[in-house]
Computed example of a mutant assay.
Amino acid sequence: MTYSSEEFRVACFTQAAKKHRFLQDFVDFGIEQGRVSGWKQAILLVLRERGVLSAFGNDLRISECDDPETLERWIKKATVVANVDELFD
């Protein structure tokens, strides 16, 4: 059976991807962790600049959250809440 150069390239890429999937999972995890860390920093910065964040416990609650959906919801709310308790509602 004869392969075209494109078919050969795709086959090689597929094999390489299978072999390196384990490494790619780590890369993907690192990218997601970086995104989560950035969201945490952004939430804290916005709340501090607005004078809304005051209690250490709230700062810690935000810093310890690793759920991307929760952080995305909080970052949207951080610009409009009157107090930090509203962020967590």
Score class of each variant (00 low, 15 high):
71 L>G: 00
28 D>C: 14
48 R>G: 08
14 T>N: 14
50 R>A: 10
21 R>I: 12
1 M>H: 08
55 A>N: 11
62 I>T: 03
64 E>N: 14
8 F>R: 10
45 L>A: 06
73 R>L: 05
70 T>H: 05
53 L>R: 01
77 K>H: 03
2 T>R: 04
87 L>F: 04
53 L>A: 09
8 F>M: 11
76 K>D: 05
73 R>S: 11
22 F>G: 12
58 N>C: 07
48 R>V: 07
13 F>Q: 10
2 T>A: 14
61 R>A: 02
54 S>G: 10
33 Q>D: 09
60 L>E: 13
70 T>N: 01
75 I>E: 02
27 V>N: 04
34 G>W: 09
40 K>M: 14
8 F>V: 15
10 V>Q: 15
2 T>H: 11
6 E>H: 14
50 R>L: 15
76 K>W: 06
6 E>S: 12
64 E>L: 11
11 A>G: 15
89 D>E: 10
46 V>P: 07
78 A>V: 01
69 E>G: 06
33 Q>V: 15
36 V>N: 00
45 L>C: 06
61 R>L: 12
56 F>S: 13
8 F>H: 12
57 G>Q: 11
60 L>W: 06
60 L>R: 12
32 E>A: 13
77 K>L: 12
41 Q>N: 07
64 E>I: 08
10 V>R: 11
68 P>E: 06
24 Q>H: 13
49 E>F: 05
62 I>G: 00
36 V>G: 01
55 A>P: 08
9 R>M: 15
71 L>Y: 00
60 L>I: 06
23 L>C: 06
87 L>A: 03
67 D>P: 00
42 A>T: 07
74 W>K: 00
82 A>V: 03
57 G>I: 11
49 E>P: 05
34 G>A: 12
50 R>I: 10
87 L>W: 02
85 D>H: 09
46 V>Y: 05
54 S>H: 15
69 E>M: 08
1 M>P: 07
73 R>H: 04
56 F>H: 14
6 E>Q: 13
22 F>I: 10
52 V>N: 11
68 P>T: 03
83 N>A: 08
40 K>C: 08
54 S>Y: 09
82 A>W: 01
7 E>G: 10
49 E>W: 01
56 F>W: 11
15 Q>S: 13
61 R>H: 05
74 W>S: 00
35 R>H: 08
50 R>P: 13
62 I>N: 00
66 D>Y: 01
53 L>E: 02
76 K>Y: 04
18 K>G: 15
5 S>D: 13
86 E>I: 04
27 V>M: 07
75 I>P: 01
63 S>N: 06
29 F>Y: 14
63 S>V: 11
60 L>M: 12
50 R>K: 13
88 F>H: 07
42 A>D: 12
71 L>C: 00
13 F>G: 14
68 P>C: 00
70 T>Q: 04
83 N>D: 14
21 R>A: 14
35 R>T: 07
16 A>R: 08
31 I>L: 13
11 A>W: 06
41 Q>H: 09
45 L>H: 03
44 L>F: 09
19 K>A: 15
15 Q>K: 07
22 F>Q: 04
87 L>C: 01
48 R>I: 09
44 L>C: 02
62 I>P: 00
38 G>Q: 09
4 S>A: 09
33 Q>E: 14
38 G>T: 10
57 G>M: 08
71 L>T: 00
85 D>Y: 02
85 D>K: 03
